[in-house]
């Protein structure tokens, strides 16, 4: 009986801790999301007064959804591309950033300086600045194609290699690899730090004990580091997935935003977005199911 009251009290305390967030969820997330869903079944028109009208669609409530697949040429292609992105980009970024985070967590001279440098991509790649950099200010000046998406400029290297008499094919292969590695480094800045938070939370004494007991580095990685890092792998997969598939660099999102903000076809954009969103939610659900055991073995 007494046990019951304690668990009730704990449940109430739990609710109190999440209450501000829960109110916010209802007001600033569920409410607009529901509106956003309703828009997709109508023809959304902004009115002059600042309000909006919802007009019925010509071909039924699901007209926007059907049009996205049948009469839109770009959407299906972009949709398929997004899956490709998911399948190779996300695992590569997560593994790469785990590797770099482990390197940064080892003891060596200049570690503090290195950690400082590895924090920089977060500042440089977020928002407006990355657009300014990646739209290639340098490229404008040099008269090179401005649409290149890499922050790291390989044009100088290309020139150098071409001048030293290496064939065009090899040069473009080499610079292609370098450019994609450079992109990989820029894309994994946040992930490296999330892993670093996890690695820093492991007490040094655990490793000392393992060493005294005769464990190799390989063994202590799997027995000590990996279990702690597992939830962080989940967080990073979710984060990488979202920046890759839900960020403005993604083909679908980019297209949807163009439709919404430049063509002002907000309800059509909403319908396209919902289908994509549900597909992505299924994938996240899959990742979640894999990591569920590790996440919910709470004490």
């Amino acid at each position: 009986m007494k046990r019951n009251t304690i668990s009730k009290k704990r449940a109430l305390a739990g609710w109190m801790f999440v209450l501000p967030w829960f109110i916010g969820l209802l007001v600033f997330f569920i409410q607009p999301t529901a509106k956003f869903l309703i828009f997709s079944f109508f023809d959304f028109q902004m009115s002059q007064t600042g309000g909006y009208d919802l007009l019925p669609l010509e071909n039924g409530a699901f007209g926007n959804y059907i049009n996205a697949w049948l009469s839109d040429s770009e959407y299906p292609v972009a949709f398929a591309d997004a899956f490709k992105t998911f399948l190779y980009e996300v695992p590569i970024i997560v593994f790469f950033s785990l590797f770099v985070a482990i390197l940064l967590n080892q003891d060596f001279k200049g570690r503090a300086l290195m950690r400082t440098i590895f924090f920089l991509p977060i500042i440089l790649t977020s928002g407006a600045l990355s657009l300014v950099i990646s739209r290639g200010v340098g490229a404008i000046a040099m008269g090179v194609d401005t649409s290149s998406s890499t922050i790291f400029d390989v044009s100088l290297l290309t020139e150098l290699l071409m001048n030293s008499g290496i064939s065009q094919k090899i040069v473009s292969a080499v610079t292609g690899v370098i450019a994609s590695v450079a992109d990989l480094i820029w894309d994994s800045g946040v992930q490296i730090l999330i892993f670093l938070i996890g690695l820093l939370s492991i007490p040094e004494t655990y490793y000392e004990v393992a060493r005294v007991e005769g464990a190799t580095g390989w063994e202590s990685f799997w027995k000590i580091t990996f279990p702690v890092i597992c939830p962080f792998i989940f967080a990073n997969m979710v984060y990488t997935f979202i920046t890759a598939c839900m960020g403005i660099n993604n083909g679908v999102i980019d297209y949807v935003l163009v439709v919404a903000t430049e063509n002002f076809d907000y309800s059509f954009a909403s319908a396209m977005m919902w289908m994509y969103f549900v597909a992505m939610l299924v994938i996240i659900g899959g990742i979640f199911a894999i990591f569920r055991k590790m996440l919910f073995n709470s004490k």
Binding site: L25, F29, G247
Partner: peptide, 21 residues
Amino acid sequence: VFVVITIMMPAQMINIPNYLN
């Protein structure tokens, strides 16, 4: 689960309903 969903929804999409809100 809703925590994860809120991360997933691109802020750009619900900005317009949120503006009205």
